[in-house]
Simulated assay, not measured.
Amino acid sequence: MGKTTLKDIAQRVGVTEMTVSAALRNTGRISAAMRRQIIEMADKLGYRPNAAARSIRSGRFGCLALLVSREHPTPVTTPLLAGMEDAMRAKNLHLLLSCLPDEKLVDQDYMPHILRESMADGLLIKHDVNIPDAMVELIERHRIRIPALWLNSKHKGNCIYFDEFRSGAVATEHLIGLGHRRIAYYTHTDRRDAHYSIQDRFEGYCDAMRRAGLTPSWLDGPPGEAFERRARLEAILERLGGRERPTAVVAENETTARIVMLAAARLQLAPAADLSLITFSDAPFDDCGIPIDTMALPVAEMGSRSVNMLLQIIDDRALRLPPVKLLPRRLDGETCGPPKARARPVGPRRGRRAGAGTDAP
Rank of each mutant, 00 (worst) to 15 (best):
D293T: 14
A33M: 09
F227L: 14
A184H: 11
L310A: 07
R349F: 09
E40D: 11
P361C: 05
L100T: 10
V250T: 12
D282I: 03
R192G: 08
A248T: 04
R182M: 03
R349E: 11
L80Q: 09
G357M: 00
S153Q: 08
R182S: 09
T27Q: 13
A169R: 14
W218N: 08
A208R: 01
R245P: 00
H127Y: 15
I114Q: 02
H188N: 15
D163G: 07
P147Q: 00
P345S: 01
D121G: 00
P222D: 11
E228M: 08
P348S: 06
M84Y: 07
V307S: 05
A120F: 01
D8T: 07
L297I: 13
R48C: 03
V15P: 02
R192P: 06
H195I: 00
A296K: 14
R266I: 02
V250D: 02
H174M: 12
S118V: 10
A235S: 11
D190F: 03
L93M: 03
I30S: 10
L331A: 05
L105G: 04
L269E: 05
P223C: 06
T4I: 10
L214A: 03
F61N: 12
R266G: 03
R353F: 11
F285S: 01
K3Q: 14
R320Q: 15
K104Q: 14
H188C: 13
H113Q: 07
S98I: 11
G83T: 06
L124Y: 04
A87K: 08
E137W: 02
D86L: 12
R230A: 15
A33C: 06
T78M: 13
A263V: 04
Y185S: 03
I236E: 02
P361K: 09
Y185F: 15
Y196K: 00
K44Q: 14
V15M: 08
H174I: 08
V170S: 15
G59V: 02
P79G: 02
M135E: 08
A82V: 11
C206K: 04
